Computed example of a mutant assay.
Amino acid sequence: MKIKEMIVVEGRDDTIAIQRAVNADTIETNGSAVNEETLKRIALAQQRRGVIILTDPDYPGERIRRIVSERVPGCKHAFLPKKAALSKNGDDLGVENAAPEAIRHALEKVHEAMEDPLEVISRQDLFDAGLMAGADAKKRREQLGILLGIGYANGKTLYKRLKAFQITKREFAEAIAQIVEEGRD
Rank of each mutant, 00 (worst) to 15 (best):
A45K: 03
Q47N: 11
Q47S: 15
R48L: 14
G50F: 08
G50T: 08
G50I: 10
V51M: 13
V51R: 05
V51S: 10
I52T: 11
I52Q: 10
I52W: 06
I53T: 07
L54Q: 00
T55F: 02
T55R: 10
T55D: 06
D56R: 08
D56C: 10
D56E: 12
D56Y: 08
P57E: 10
P57A: 02
D58P: 11
Y59S: 13
P60Y: 12
P60T: 06
G61C: 02
G61D: 04
E62V: 00
E62H: 12
E62T: 12
R63S: 13
R63V: 10
R63K: 15
I64T: 02
I64G: 01
R65T: 13
R66Y: 05
R66V: 01
S69C: 06
S69W: 00
S69A: 14
E70P: 04
E70F: 11
E70D: 13
R71T: 12
R71H: 12
V72F: 04
V72P: 03
V72N: 06
P73L: 08
P73Y: 06
G74W: 03
C75N: 03
C75Q: 03
H77W: 00
H77D: 13
H77M: 05
A78N: 08
A78H: 02
A78P: 02
F79L: 03
F79A: 15
F79Y: 15
F79C: 13
F79R: 07
F79I: 04
F79K: 03
P81T: 14
A84M: 08
A84R: 09
A85H: 07
A85M: 03
A85L: 05
A85C: 06
L86F: 00
L86T: 15
L86A: 05
S87T: 04
S87R: 06
K88P: 12
K88E: 12
K88M: 11
N89I: 11
G90W: 05
G90H: 06
G90Y: 01
D91S: 13
L93H: 04
L93P: 05
L93R: 09
G94K: 02
G94Y: 05
G94Q: 08
V95Q: 08
V95L: 15
V95W: 10
E96T: 02
E96H: 12
E96R: 00
